[in-house]
Amino acid sequence: MGQALLVLEDGRAFRGEPYGATGETFGEAVFCTAMTGYQETLTDPSFHRQVVVMTYPHVGNTGWNDEDDESSRIWVAGYVVRDPARRHSSWRSRRGLDEELARQGVVGISGVDTRALTRHLRDKGSMRVGISTVETDPAKLLERVLRQPPMLGANLIDEVTTPEPKLIAAEGEKRFTVAAIDLGIKAMTPQRMSQRGIDVHLLPATTTFDEVLALNPDGVFFSNGPGDPATAEREIGLLRQVLDAGLPYFGICFGNQLFGRALGLDTYKLRFGHRGVNQPVMDLRTRKVEITSQNHGFAVQAPLDTDIETPYGIARVSHIGLNDDVVEGLELRDEQGRVKAFSVQYHPEAAAGPHDAAYLFDRFVELLEGRPTTSEGGEN
């Protein structure tokens, strides 16, 4: 089957076998703790320019189908697995995972001690990496790894956003119109809104505030996406105009980080990030714990237990990660104490992942209706 080589930017090297396309690829090495849902993971634009290491050893057993993609393509820069399935078995599968990786030109490596690799990334932090099926000398591959740009300071929004506006129509009777800024959105997110009677206008990241207002939206949404939120000055400026206008706002993942920065908070790069479908989060409003799907390497810096004065009102941390107390949600209240904008750091659309947080879309509907959001939540 040939050989493949993986080299991290600190010189640590692993050898294995080619998996997917042959050739060479570079990116940021990150690990994902999900046991399943690899198709949704691979097609999540938030993984753009990242080489994903799967901690679960057995990958590919359900093959690849034509229904579960979260976007039009695989976005990961490379894929690292330990024990790929010898054959795929699912009534929905159309081809093998390795076949799809090869078809889309994604270079991967198998037969790697992913436990050792993950422990290394956990201890040393996410770092640049290269995978090659043509280079056998670790020193030579390392030279090319070190020439790659880091994720810190990377602006990738224009590489993943939709080139043209799109309408995802409401299912059944239309109740609301939402302007959704595509920063790397997953397909399930507008679907969850359309199921609740929302016309979702999916808009390029270059959309101006006047173009948003022209839609006469009931609210504005910012999606997940890749890159460093500190570089998204254009999008942060748009969000500040949305907040100035008092439009209801909901943000997910990258949309949470940009919400924080729009409020005047800082963001920072996590040591190794949160990626997987098994991340515990507490909703501080209800004290309920949700098991969530996450994919982020940056987070908002904010006090966890005090009000935050902003130019738009009083903000507060609404959700925290129970593994490490990372900010997992923010909310902004008006003078009467009612929520007028909120965001979460994880993926409540559950693709792939648990459904504990689906209630957040109902909270958004309540916000669009102009009534106080409920204190009850969760399909726990």
Rank of each mutant, 00 (worst) to 15 (best):
T41K: 06
T55D: 05
D69W: 15
T62E: 12
E70H: 05
A34W: 05
W64V: 15
I74R: 07
G63W: 09
F31N: 05
S72A: 11
H48S: 03
T33F: 10
V52D: 00
S46V: 08
T62H: 15
F47Q: 07
Q50I: 02
V52R: 04
Q39K: 15
Q39D: 03
E28V: 11
D44A: 09
M54V: 06
S72E: 12
T62F: 15
S46D: 01
E40S: 14
E70Y: 06
D66G: 11
T41S: 06
M35R: 15
N61S: 13
V53Y: 01
G63K: 10
S46L: 03
A34E: 03
E67C: 08
Q39H: 07
S72N: 11
T41D: 02
E28W: 09
V52N: 00
L42G: 01
Y38N: 07
C32L: 13
F47A: 07
N65K: 12
R49S: 04
V30C: 04
D66K: 14
D44F: 09
A34M: 12
G37R: 10
A34P: 00
V59A: 02
L42H: 10
T55W: 09
T62D: 15
P45R: 04
G63H: 10
Q50R: 14
P57A: 10
M54K: 05
Q39R: 07
P57C: 02
E28N: 09
V53C: 04
E28P: 00
S46A: 14
L42D: 01
G63T: 08
T62S: 10
G60W: 10
F47P: 00
T33K: 11
E67I: 14
G27A: 02
M35V: 14
S72L: 13
T33I: 14
G37E: 03
E70I: 04
R73D: 02
G63E: 03
A29M: 07
H58W: 12
D69E: 13
P45C: 07
I74E: 00
H58V: 14
D68P: 01
Q50P: 00
Q39N: 05
M54W: 06
P57E: 11
N61Y: 14
V30D: 01
V30M: 05
D44K: 06
L42Q: 03
N65R: 08
W64H: 08
V30A: 04
Y56M: 03
R73L: 01
G27E: 01
E70A: 09
N61E: 15
D68H: 12
T33G: 04
E67K: 15
V59E: 00
R49K: 12
T62C: 09
T41Q: 10
V52Q: 01
F31I: 03
T41V: 14
Q50F: 06
M35Y: 12
C32W: 09
W64F: 15
D69M: 10
R73W: 06
L42K: 03
S46W: 02
Q39L: 12
T43L: 04
Y38L: 09
T62Y: 15
S46F: 09
T43Q: 05
Q50T: 09
S72G: 10
D69P: 03
T36L: 04
R49C: 06
S71Q: 02
V52T: 02
E28Q: 10
T55Y: 06
D66E: 15
S46M: 10
Y56E: 10
L42T: 02
E67A: 13
R73Y: 06
M35N: 12
D69V: 07
R73N: 01
E28A: 04
H48T: 09
N65E: 02
T43N: 04
M35I: 04
H58N: 11
